[in-house]
């Protein structure tokens, strides 16, 4: 464990320790704020109950990521190839971020139903923007001298994209993807809060109504672990693919 990791671990331990200490000293009821020990215990003991919900939420997130990749990557490339289209699409892209996702969620449930589709769509709305914009900025950041070199070689746009622009943009693309996968949980959970029959968001709402606050926190812990795992996996992929950095 390096120095930075050690500091982070110590900080987390300190926060959890203080939390545990004050909850016990102040005798805070479990249904208001359970201590971390109780949350961890619930997260483990209740795992058989939480797991099916987590699988559903994870499926929604992964489908959202897949959908975002399938749409954001081609759109970023099209906007890069045709700057006029970038100008045309830019207001819509910005607007997609300006509209609060919470405001969209009830409508999406009405339009797409209580099933998985509305949650996948919510996750997609959130992930799409960071991937699309970071990839576009990455493509645009290519050194003009390389563009001259490739033009002198008589390279087609497709060849330039494959050999030059895409590898050039990869570090920024991965930066966007990392942001995307970590915020994807927000989209899926909001979708589940508004209307769902399963998923971690649904479990949280149900447990909250029954004052099972430790289970609410356990679900949040699982969500956090899922987000961190996806961030970690993308980081590993990034290191494997971008070997030259």
């Amino acid at each position: 464990m390096n120095r930075n990791n050690l500091l982070a671990a110590l900080l987390i331990a300190l926060i959890l320790g203080l939390w545990e200490f004050f909850v016990h000293i102040l005798a805070v009821p479990v249904f208001i704020l359970p201590p971390p020990s109780s949350i961890f215990t619930t997260a483990v003991i209740q795992a058989p109950r939480i797991l099916p919900h987590a699988v559903i939420t994870l499926t929604e997130i992964l489908m959202g990521i897949g959908l975002a990749l399938c749409t954001a990557v081609p759109l970023a490339i099209i906007m890069f190839a045709k700057p006029a289209l970038e100008k045309a699409f830019a207001p819509f892209l910005v607007a997609s971020q300006a509209i609060p996702v919470f405001a969209l969620a009830p409508l999406l449930v009405v339009w797409l139903g209580y099933g998985i589709a509305s949650k996948v769509f919510m996750a997609w709305v959130i992930i799409f923007f960071p991937i699309c914009i970071s990839l576009l900025e990455g493509l645009k950041s290519c050194d003009p001298e390389f563009k001259i070199l490739f033009r002198l070689m008589g390279a087609s746009f497709f060849k330039k994209l494959m050999l030059l622009y895409w590898p050039w943009a990869l570090p920024r693309f991965f930066a966007g993807l990392k942001v995307g996968v970590t915020v994807a949980t927000i989209g899926a959970v909001i979708g589940e809060w508004v209307g769902a029959q399963q998923g971690l968001g649904f479990l949280m709402i149900q447990s909250n109504a029954r004052l099972q606050v430790d289970l609410v926190f356990a679900a949040i812990l699982w969500l956090t672990a899922m987000g961190l795992s996806m961030w970690w996996i993308v980081g590993i992929l990034e290191k494997r693919i971008i070997k030259w950095n």
């Binding site: 001298e145 490739f150 002198l152 050999l163 070997k243």
Partner: peptide
């Protein structure tokens, strides 16, 4: 053909693949 002050080699390709770029694009 054009050669500049900077070597303009792409860091994600080996030296051979860099040298082969004009052939790949052409």
């Amino acid at each position: 053909a054009y050669m500049q002050q900077k070597d303009m080699l792409l860091p994600w390709f080996s030296l051979l693949d860099n040298a082969l770029l004009p052939s790949k694009t052409g």
